[in-house]
Design a binder for these strands. Sequence first.
DNA 1: TCTAATAAGGACCGAAATGGTACTCTTTCG
DNA 2: CGAAAGAGTACCATTTCGGTCCTTATTAGA
Lengths: 153, 153
Amino acid sequence: MLRVSRLTDYATLVMVCLGDTGEGVLSAQTLADRARLEAPTVSKLLKQLAQAGLVVSTRGANGGYRLARAPESITVADIVTAMEGPIGMTECSVQPGNCNLEPWCGMRVNWQRINRAIADAFASVTLADMIHAPPPARHATTIPLRVAAGRVS
Amino acid sequence: MLRVSRLTDYATLVMVCLGDTGEGVLSAQTLADRARLEAPTVSKLLKQLAQAGLVVSTRGANGGYRLARAPESITVADIVTAMEGPIGMTECSVQPGNCNLEPWCGMRVNWQRINRAIADAFASVTLADMIHAPPPARHATTIPLRVAAGRVS
DNA sequence: TCTAATAAGGACCGAAATGGTACTCTTTCG
DNA sequence: CGAAAGAGTACCATTTCGGTCCTTATTAGA
């Protein structure tokens, strides 16, 4: 299946947690608890998100992370790009020069067209959309454990 | 980088070769030569394309493959789906039930929205588009070797 | 000033996916 | 019957991915 990596999925979840809860800085450990993910994993992806400028880190005691911008101005495209690098369906559509077929192959422009459309699709959803989306109808009987996306508990 | 697998890239190239050259059936070997790919690799992906109903195979001597439909009615989405399965950016957006977060998590509907947009992007380019795209301006000096996409010769 | 908390930066490892190869079986044409 | 060609299966090397751990740097607070 064509899909984003699990880390990217997790990163989105962590960003939602960060945007959801007021504004104080949250430590990697706290975020891991809220997202039901392993702490080292959360640390790793927060590091990447910080390098990409999507979150701001504070070191030292009582340090942690907070969103660098308002959730409305952070898109899923930002998160995907931070975690996976540029969005490009083929090598040639991002890094020209690696394919000797290039001078002859007309597919490149079409792949670039597709890439652009896909990037737009990711950019059309903001973190705020993710946060405020109406959760699906509650089952009244059970209060579900909050378990990380993709994990089968 | 978020990208389709190399096999999918190759599959597109092979489909272009199939659609480009008149109409006779072409053997896997011939297609491998034209696309500058290894024959077993081409065989493998043609098998998948045949199972998906995008190409029709003829067994026995003088057998080979031909497109199942006109290039205008085959989209890149068809090829990607044939090679990689359903297009879905996260587990939960394709196979509900694997994630205990589901009853609570509002991200799912947003991921599904993104998936739909991406599928549309793939579906908006047909094999005919790929075939008839104007190749980039020729460099007059060298006649490039036709080497497969992504291979560094 | 000392200590605890916390992020930063690597190094590392096991498992899974990917891409590629080989071998055998079946079908069809001549 | 024999050669050509697809179908099916199994296998292997490499890379990527997800995850863990350790060390260093930085800050708040006792």
